[in-house]
């Protein structure tokens, strides 16, 4: 694909492949539980072992998310998070880190209201590498996906268990960066994926694309991360990290420490997966 934007995402996956290991992709919601804590969590993620960072843009009506990420959005919005603040977080992160890819993830309305052109320009400027907009399927590619590619951002597609062989090419047409395989039919953070099913599905998808495939929705423990990572090129963990923020008692410090600790444990699991070739 010639017009595929080349970003930190491609560089990262190429490097990981050279090193023979899988990617740990971590999700947190921007501004959760507050701007300052969230920035500290974000800034420390690469050090803790995150290879790619998904930063959620909070939305009042996250219809593809389970309770954990719904509550994360609510906490962030209550603390006053806005799109401008989310982009500012990325800008600050980039002052220290110019290699870890950042993918903004969320729903279309806050982007649309910010203004598509303005959003793409500001996101690129801030140092964003890719976008995952849950409610923009390939049928709506003209809205944001094609303009995003123009602007030099990867538009990362979700493939799901309902994306059959007939539909897959449509999903892959304008996909770039990596492909996010949603391992369950369901919302985020609810049921656990079946590793064997996932392996078969990812193998099927890999016959259609050379993009790295990361597996997410329902990955919670280092053990699970390890098992699932072997099926693809990486795993995405969100709800489990966000749950730590929800449970943190003293707010800031405990949330930061807890998220980074779990990230370290997950990263270890994922690294083992790459090494022993299982």
């Amino acid at each position: 694909m010639s017009n595929e934007p080349r970003t930190r995402i491609a560089e990262t996956f190429e490097r990981l492949q050279r090193e023979g290991r899988k990617a740990l992709v971590t999700f947190i919601t921007a501004g959760d539980p507050d701007l300052d804590t969230s920035q500290r969590i974000l800034d420390g993620l690469p050090q803790a072992g995150a290879d790619v960072i998904e930063l959620g843009m909070p939305f009042t009506d996250p219809m593809a998310d389970g309770p954990a990420i719904q509550l994360a959005s609510q906490r962030a919005l209550k603390a006053g998070q806005t799109m401008e603040k989310t982009l500012a977080m990325v800008r600050r992160f980039r002052q220290e880190d110019d290699t870890t890819p950042i993918v903004l993830m969320g729903y279309y309305n806050p982007v649309y209201v910010y203004g598509n052109e303005r959003f793409l320009r500001d996101a690129k400027d801030a140092g964003v590498d890719g976008l995952i907009i849950v409610d923009l399927p390939p049928e709506e590619d003209e809205e944001l996906c094609l303009p995003a590619m123009e602007a030099g951002l990867n538009f990362i597609r979700l493939a799901t268990p309902t994306t059959d062989d007939e539909r897959l090419p449509k999903v892959l047409t304008n996909a770039s960066g990596f492909l996010y395989y949603v391992s369950i039919t369901g919302v985020t953070g609810t049921r656990a994926p079946d590793a064997r099913d996932v392996a078969a599905q990812v193998a099927r998808i890999k016959r259609h694309t050379s993009l790295p495939v990361c597996i997410g929705f329902g990955v919670k423990t280092p053990q699970q991360a390890r098992t699932l990572a072997t099926a693809g090129d990486g795993v995405v963990v969100g709800s489990a990290l966000v749950d730590i923020i929800a449970r943190a008692q003293d707010g800031g410090a405990e949330a930061v420490r807890g998220v980074h600790e779990l990230t370290r444990a997950l990263a270890e699991g994922v690294r083992v997966a790459g090494k022993d070739g299982t």
């Binding site: 219809m63 593809a64 279309y108 849950v134 409610d135 923009l136 399927p137 390939p138 049928e139 709506e140 597609r157 979700l158 493939a159 799901t160 268990p161 309902t162 994306t163 059959d164 539909r167 999903v171 949603v182 039919t185």
Partner: peptide, 10 residues
């Protein structure tokens, strides 16, 4: 339009 998650699209 059809602004839904991929799981629902099919």
């Amino acid at each position: 339009g059809r602004f839904v998650a991929e799981t629902l699209m099919p």
